[in-house]
Amino acid sequence: MINYIFKRILYAIPILIGVNLLTFTLFFVVNSPDEVARLHLGNKRVTQEQIQSWNEQRGYNFPLFFNQSETGLNVIKKTIFYEKSVKLFYFDFGISDSGRDIKYDIKQRMWPSLAIALPSLLVGLMINITFALFFVFFRATKVDYIGVIFCVALMSISSLFYIIGGQYLISKLLQLVPISGYAQGVDAIKFLILPVFISVIYGIGSGTRWYRSLFLEEIEKDYVKTAKSKGLSEVSVLFNHVFKNALIPILTGVVVILPLLFLGSLIVESFFGIPGLGSYTIDAIQSQDFAIVRAMVFLGTILYIFGLILTDISYTLVDPRVRLK
């Protein structure tokens, strides 16, 4: 087990290097730092000095790979590649283009993101599984048919509509909760209810259908037939056999996204003005702050790979048939 985890972590290194090289190519080779600076300073009538000083302030004034003017190790160290890409590996995200410490910002903004994402996930999971079990219980009847059509209809609505509609209905017309904003501590609850509620509603369509198909797959298996022929009731078969065995794919599906919850949801956070990592990313994209986008790409990749490792571990925990080598 330990060996396996160690191997997986080793395997993650080439992937991270690949992602790093890809972002480096995207952000520094496709467009040179000078061009990015020109865009930020406003395209026309920008002098070379202005571009120079903009680059200097943000540390973009080095050559890409080799600095001929330095000696020793600094030939490699005083380059954009080392400063901006290699340093990501020690979690040194540097400063954003607007001059803020990215690492500090990420640490601050992680928790509001989690405060929305975790409840949405848990509540959504419970509701979706309940609906799915309900439909499976009534499988091949009108209830199931209408339920599935309803799920497809829910899936076909854009996430933006849920947000705009929910904000309008609940905050503006009924005035139950504030439209947007965030507060520290317990006060945060009244700001969190609506986004969580909307995220849950948004997920019902696809979630329920997905779990329903997992349950249906399980229900065709032989052990279910055995249980039924023993004379067990439909309900007890559903809960004691089908549900328990379908939990394995459900659980592993959840585990893989657990680390990514820190990244938050881009759209929800920016609509509700929640200072999480999702709105951080959106703001960075909209103000073309590439340093933040680069850092978030790297962070997202690390969290995703971490999620995959966790998934493998959780497999061994819930399914004794799986042994990792």
Partner: peptide, 16 residues
């Protein structure tokens, strides 16, 4: 490698 990057971020960086 491509799959490890959250897709929105990858699309965003490419389009930016």
């Amino acid at each position: 490698t491509l799959n490890s990057i959250p897709s929105v971020l990858l699309i965003a960086s490419a389009i930016l």
